Every structure is written in structure tokens, then in C-alpha cells.
Amino acid sequence: MSPAEPVADPAADPVRRWRRLVGTDTAVLLDGFHALKHAVRFGAEVPVAVTADREAALALADDLAPDVREPLAALLTEVPRATYEALVPRPHPTAVAALAVRPPREANLAALTREPRRAPVVVLDNPRNLGNAGAVIRLAAGFGATGVVTTGTLDPWHPTVVRGGAGLHFATAVERLDVEELPAGPVFALDPEGDDLRGVRLPDDAVLAFGSERAGLSSALRARADHLLALPMRPQVSSYNLATSVAMTLYHWSTTGFPSGT
């Protein structure tokens, strides 16, 4: 190598950058075009993004997300399909993947505790199903909820949860807390023995709590609840899917408390 020849910067190689970041505490895997699209749209920091077909990915942006087409064009680097498939555990049909930076816990806590609150916080009490948690985060972002809190051991930033949320973790505050750490506000907990949801007005600062898919509300959350509410349900039907329950409750809130301009 001649003295005048520039030395390659390892940081400029997206594969090396990926391997340096993946597995760190702050790296969030964005699986697929839609997850990357939403993350960029809502201001995520994305250090590296790859695709096995850059032309196809940008064509998707032209069709579905022209508002973020320019930043996606700047971010996406094409790599061989075999390289792309080696970087991700489950290749996505759009052949797009990226690593984003998880928001600091302090920022999420500040968003969850800011007052006055113009939209509810959704609490998943000891959830078990990663896909359900992701679907709830997607719903919460769509309704403009302040955030989603999980209690228990499930990590709401697990790659499978982020995949289920289509990258919309970056559109709302997502954090894991203990029951005693829940944000202030009246706690409305969903329970089959509660009052009919349709007869209750949910305030904008409500904390809406949903029990786990199998065990329901924990004793700690039940003790913290100010109101128990039940969803309308035909006799002999035992339960709704968790995401469906959250959707019904947020829709009920939206009929009277949905903030304008979101």
C-alpha cells in the first residue's frame, strides 16, 4: 500500500458495524421495511441498515412511505442476500433489516410521568406472549397512548416484540416497571367481575391495566386498582385475545377522550 492510499475505515463497512453493535444493551433489531420505516418516521437513531435488494426497498418507500424515502435512501446499504440472511435470525420478506438505538430509560420514564397527561398509559401485567405484547404496542401507538408498561419478566424491547410492533416502539414510551412504580393516575383494571366498560368514562390520565393471557391480574395490580372494568362479552365465551381487549378499551376511551391533533 502506498503512503497516499487511504486506509479503509472499519466503521464504514455496514457488516462490521452491525456485528459491533448487535447484542449490546442499546441495540434494537428492526425486522423488515415497515419496522425501519416507522422507526425513522418517529425519530429513532439508526446507525446501520441493510437490504438484499435496495431497488425494491426504495420502490416500497416510493409507494408506501414517500415522507421517509430520502432518509431511507441515505441509510440503506445493499449486501448479498446470503450476508443479509446471516445477520438476522428470521429473514423478512422485504429483505430489510436495521439496528436502532433504544431510547434511554430516563426519557421513557419522563414521558410516562409527565403531567398533565393527555392520553392513557397501557399496562400489561406480567404478559407472557411476545407477539401479543408487540401487537399492543402497535395499537397504543395508533391511538396515541402515552406509553405501554409491562410488569414481570418479559422484555418489551425483545426482538420478537419489536417485530410484532412494526417498529412503533419509537412512537410511544415503552418500559418495564414494577407495579409500585406505575405512573400516577386512576388505575382501571380489566377483570370479568368488574363494571361494564360501556357505562364508564375513561379519563385521559387513566392507567389501563390488563392481566396476563392465562392468569389474569396479579394480586399486586388488583390491590393497586381504583376501578375494575369488564368488557362486554357473550355468555359462554371465556375471553378475548389480549390485543383485542386493549383495542376495545382504547377505542372506548377514544370516543370521549381522544386528544385532537394526534
Rank of each mutant, 00 (worst) to 15 (best):
P3M: 01
P3A: 10
A8V: 14
A12H: 12
A12D: 15
P14S: 06
V15Y: 03
R16C: 06
R16Y: 04
V22H: 13
G23I: 11
T24H: 07
A27W: 05
L29E: 07
G32I: 09
H34V: 09
F42G: 10
F42H: 15
F42Y: 15
V50P: 10
T51L: 12
A52R: 07
A52T: 11
A56D: 15
A57S: 13
P71F: 06
P71A: 12
A74Y: 03
L76N: 06
A82G: 08
Y84H: 12
Y84A: 06
A86F: 11
V88Y: 07
P89N: 10
A95S: 13
R102L: 09
R105F: 03
L109S: 13
A119W: 02
A119H: 02
P120Q: 01
N126C: 11
N129S: 14
G131N: 13
G131D: 13
N132W: 04
N132G: 05
G134W: 00
V136N: 08
I137K: 05
R138C: 11
L139T: 15
A141G: 13
A141N: 10
A145V: 01
V149H: 11
T153E: 13
L154P: 05
D155S: 08
T160R: 13
T160Y: 05
V161W: 00
V162K: 07
R163Q: 14
G164R: 00
G165A: 15
G165H: 08
G167I: 09
H169K: 07
F170G: 06
F170D: 08
T172A: 12
V174C: 12
R176T: 10
L177R: 13
L177I: 14
L182S: 08
P183F: 08
P183V: 11
P183I: 12
A184T: 12
F188V: 04
P192Y: 02
G194D: 06
D195H: 09
D196R: 13
L197A: 05
L197N: 01
V200E: 11
D204I: 01
F210G: 01
E213Y: 02
R214L: 11
S218A: 05
A220V: 04
A220Q: 14
R224D: 10
H227E: 14
L231T: 00
L231C: 03
R234Q: 02
P235W: 02
Q236A: 11
S238A: 14
S239Q: 02
S239I: 07
S245Q: 04
T249G: 01
L250N: 02
L250I: 09
T255R: 15
G257L: 01
F258A: 14
G261P: 03
G261D: 12
